[in-house]
Amino acid sequence: MATRSSKLRAPVTKPVALALTALVAAAALIGGPVTMAYWNDATEQTPQQIESGLLSITAGITATYFDLASASDVASTVSAPSAQGLIPGKRGQKITYTLASGSGDAVQSRILGSISAPATSVWTEIYSKGYLAVNAETVGECTVNQTPGAPSWVIGNAPGQTLKPGESCKVTVTLSIPAVANISGKNVDVSRALLNLRGSASLNPLVDFAANATLAQVPRAEEN
């Protein structure tokens, strides 16, 4: 039995050896083109960190009232409403919007914005009848232009003017109502006219001015 077994084993050994040899040869052939047949080397550069910059805008608002007969302004206080409000021929109001580029901004910018108020019927009436005197002026790196025929303004920049990081644009809107307005050649008692329009002499908000503005990055070629 042992002899027979040994005879059977002999023919099996050869194919196994041949198969192993073929396998090794195949592995060598396959492996060759990838890692063995030629040389290569690789290295990686240490990553360099790059950061992007910022462009931001902040907006602030302050309001003061002033005596039409005096040059001095009176600070607005919410807790004393009797000290607020426009009084024909007596008290006017200044609203100052401060629009600023962030001090940490990475670029110069241009500003585009507006100051406007919702068109309530009373407000529109007061303005359209010429009872309201409005004016806007700027301090800083911007310009303001009134929309023709309306108490609203467009904020922008003069050609070549930009806001550098940390710089601001201040727009002050001045509102007042005269005691007497000359409308079409006739003097009108504005206090009485307003009372008729509003139906009440009590303090009553007429309008809320709002400013909104956007800073847009200036190409570096146009920075100054």
Partner: peptide, 23 residues
């Protein structure tokens, strides 16, 4: 305008892999 506003204040690590391979 504003296309890349969401990338403000971001950081990115840039690098490269260099390979030399015999031909």
């Amino acid at each position: 305008a504003g296309q890349y506003n969401d990338a403000m204040g971001g950081k990115v690590s840039l690098g490269a892999t260099y390979t030399l391979e015999q031909i």
